[in-house]
C-alpha cells in the first residue's frame, strides 16, 4: 500500500475504495456479475490542494467522486475525513449522526451539466436557501445576505437570485452551481467535469474563477475531468485512472515532464496541441477500453500496452513510489 507522507496535512483519505454495481438478469433478478466501476483506489487529499483525476470515459472517475460524497455506498474500503475539533482521521461510515450531517456540509459537489443540477421549478434564492436552512446557517435575512454575497463572488448580480435557472446561459449556470456549493462553507469541493459542457471562452472564465475562489476560501478541490490540459492547469497533483484503478499519481510538473506509466504517456501524447508544428511522436493506442465487467487478468492495461512483457499478463502491479521521487506513485512492472 502507498505510503502517505505529511500525514497531518491530509484532509481526506481513501483506502482501497471499491464500488461494484451488480448486473442482474432473468425473472428473479439474479446477480450475474459486477461492473467494477471503482476497484481499489487508495489516495490522500491534502488540505488546500487541487487533486486532479483524469481518465477516459468509463474509467470510474465520476463514481469515485460520488463515493466521496456518499452519493453511492461503498462496496469495500474506507474513506476518512479529518475531524474539525480533534484533527483525527475518521471513517465516513463510522461517524455519528451529528458528525455525519456536518461531513455532508463540508464536502460539496459541482456537477458536469449545470442545467440538470439546478431545479427548474425553483428560483435561485430557494434553491440556495434549502440546504442552508437544513444546516441552519443563519436566520432568513442572514441567509439571504450570504446568497447575495456568494452571487457577487462569482461575478453575478445579487438580484439574479429571483430568477430561474433557464434564464441563465451555460456559463452563468455553472457559476451559480459553484456559488451554491460555496454557500455551504465547504472544505472540499468535488468538481465533476465542471467545464467540459462549456464553450472555450467560457471555460477559461470558470477556471480562473475557481482558482480565485480556492485562494480566497482556502478550498480543497477534487477536480475530475477527461481533458488533460485542463486538469494539468488546474491541479497540484494528478491521479490517472484506468478501469477503476489508479495507475499513476504525481505532482503536476512531474506528471508532465517525467511520467512513468505507459498509459499516461499515451494520454499525454494524444492531446492535440494548439501550436503549429507541435506534432511530436504520437503513441496511438490500439483498441478500446475493455469492459469493467470482466477486466483483463494481470495489469488491466496490458492488452493495449505497447510495452507489455510476460509478467504484465499474469500479475497485477501495485501502486508504489518511484525510485527517484517518493511522492510519485506508479503501478507498472516496467518503471
Amino acid at each position: 500500500m502507498a505510503v502517505i507522507t505529511n500525514k497531518n496535512n491530509t484532509l481526506l483519505e481513501l483506502k482501497n475504495v471499491k464500488k461494484h454495481f451488480p448486473i442482474t438478469s432473468g425473472f428473479f433478478r439474479k446477480v450475474t456479475g459486477y461492473v467494477r466501476a471503482v476497484d481499489g483506489v487508495t489516495l490522500d487529499v491534502k488540505k488546500g490542494e487541487t487533486l486532479g483525476i483524469v481518465g477516459e470515459s468509463g474509467c470510474g472517475k465520476t463514481t469515485l467522486g460520488k463515493t466521496i460524497l456518499r452519493l453511492c455506498s461503498l462496496t469495500g474500503g474506507e474513506i476518512r475525513l479529518k475531524a474539525v475539533d480533534s484533527g483525527e482521521m475518521k471513517g465516513l461510515q463510522d461517524l455519528d449522526k451529528r458528525e455525519s450531517f456536518e461531513a455532508r456540509r463540508r464536502i460539496q459537489m459541482v456537477f458536469q451539466n449545470p442545467y440538470a443540477s439546478l431545479n427548474p421549478m425553483k428560483n435561485i434564492l430557494s434553491a440556495f436557501d434549502e440546504p442552508m436552512k437544513i444546516h441552519s446557517l443563519g436566520n432568513k435575512q442572514e441567509r439571504k445576505n450570504k446568497i447575495a454575497e456568494m452571487l457577487e463572488t462569482v461575478n453575478l448580480q445579487p438580484d439574479y437570485m429571483y430568477r430561474f435557472p433557464h434564464e441563465f446561459s451555460g456559463g452563468q449556470q455553472q457559476r451559480i452551481s459553484i456559488a451554491k456549493a460555496l454557500a455551504m462553507n465547504p472544505e472540499v469541493i468535488v468538481c465533476d467535469e465542471p467545464v467540459s459542457a462549456l464553450d472555450v471562452s467560457i471555460q477559461s472564465q470558470i477556471m480562473n474563477l475557481m482558482r480565485k475562489l480556492q485562494k480566497g476560501y482556502n478550498l480543497t478541490y477534487i477536480f475530475i475531468a477527461h481533458d488533460l490540459s485542463v486538469v494539468q492547469y488546474m491541479s497540484d497533483r494528478i491521479a490517472v485512472m484506468y478501469l477503476g484503478k489508479i495507475v499513476e499519481v504525481a505532482e503536476a510538473v512531474e506528471f508532465h515532464n517525467n511520467c512513468l506509466h505507459p498509459y499516461t504517456m499515451a494520454l499525454l501524447s494524444a492531446v492535440p496541441m494548439p501550436v503549429v508544428g507541435a506534432k511530436s511522436e504520437r503513441i496511438i493506442l490500439k483498441g478500446d477500453v475493455p469492459s469493467p465487467v470482466n477486466p483483463p487478468k494481470g495489469c488491466k492495461f496490458h492488452p493495449r500496452c505497447y510495452k507489455c512483457i510476460d509478467i504484465c499478463k499474469e500479475k497485477e502491479p501495485a501502486l508504489k513510489p518511484s525510485d527517484t521521487n517518493p511522492d510519485h506513485l506508479v503501478a507498472c512492472h516496467l518503471r
Binding site: 471562452s201 471555460q203 477559461s204 472564465q205 490540459s229 494539468q232 492547469y233 492531446v271 494548439p274
Partner: peptide
C-alpha cells in the same frame, strides 16, 4: 484562453 499542456500554472488564462 485554452490551457496548453505544460503551461506555467501561475499564468492566468486569458478569458473573453
Amino acid at each position: 484562453s485554452v490551457p496548453v499542456l505544460g503551461i506555467d500554472k501561475n499564468t492566468e488564462l486569458r478569458s473573453i
